[in-house]
Simulated scan of single mutants.
Amino acid sequence: MSAIEAEDLRASYGDGADAEVLKGISTSIPRGRLTVIVGPNGSGKSTLLMTLARIMAPSGGVVRVEGRDSAGLRGRELARLLALLPQEATAPEGIRVWELVSRGRHPHRGFWQPLGAEDHRAVEEALELTGCRELAQRRMVELSGGQRQRVWIALALAQRSPVLLLDEPTAHLDLSHALDVLDIGVRLTAAGKTVVTVLHDLNLAARYADRIIVVDGGQVVGAGAPTEVITPELVGEVFGVAALVVPDPETGSPLVVPRAQHGPAAVRAAVEAATDIGGAA
């Protein structure tokens, strides 16, 4: 059974056909694997993630999480099955790391109910898994971007939901911190979690994903293992980039190498050619 299944999923930002962002998507997320959603800007990949998480209500179709129709689940029931880290998460002013991560336990407690022993264990485990234990008493404003992102992932992990959705978790991070975040995703799937993340970088997606879903124009145009999906034809058609796709010398995963017309030498040659034409005129 898949962790998440979507059937004929539709979503809109307003009325009319032009406002429809998701246009009948049917796809599945395998349990215990790292799935990456990719696509050009405006393709609907983040909208797909938000709709799977029920942050955005679909205008049509069905989403099943762990075999259950999400439309029939109460908020806390869904939160026990699925945790979401949005793209732009903000922390209350002055909050410390441990307190923020402990808020992931809300789906398991009643209003005003104090944290119990199980809640403390869940928070400590989440901090340990994300390498944030030494940050527990630091304030969020004191942390680097990479540290903050690891703390936000710890917050989602504290929910102890079997499915974790991450919307562009590597955005605004340098390469080292981006790799740290994706390494956490791999460790989580090794421990049995299902992780779904939106990424912009095709090469990082190909290196880390067990499954890639390619979205374009509000529809799934490719899905499968990286070696099946990341091809020169797809990169050209979906992203408008002429590229070679070769095996990564480190991992063997597909490596996208844009052709020279998009490189600095090609740009300089085009400028020089235009200057020569102008001078001749």
Rank of each mutant, 00 (worst) to 15 (best):
H177Y: 15
L84Q: 07
T189N: 10
V97W: 14
L78M: 13
K193T: 08
S28C: 00
A265L: 15
A171C: 06
I153N: 07
S161K: 08
R268Y: 12
A260I: 08
R68F: 01
I213G: 03
I213A: 07
R133N: 02
Q219S: 10
E125S: 10
I37F: 14
V257H: 01
A281W: 12
E142G: 09
S59R: 10
W98A: 14
Q87E: 13
L100E: 01
D248L: 05
Q137N: 14
M140D: 04
G222A: 05
G218S: 11
D174H: 13
E228G: 08
G16F: 13
R76G: 12
S46D: 07
G14Q: 09
L155K: 09
G61C: 01
G185D: 08
V21N: 04
L164N: 03
L199V: 10
L78H: 08
D69R: 02
D119Q: 00
V186A: 11
V195R: 12
A274H: 10
V235M: 12
Y13M: 09
L84E: 03
L179P: 06
E124H: 05
R211I: 09
A265S: 14
D119H: 00
A274M: 12
H172C: 02
D119F: 06
E99A: 14
V198E: 09
E88M: 14
L9Q: 00
G146A: 02
A6S: 06
T170W: 13
Q113F: 02
P254H: 08
D201R: 04
T51V: 07
H200W: 08
A242E: 15
V267K: 03
S70Y: 07
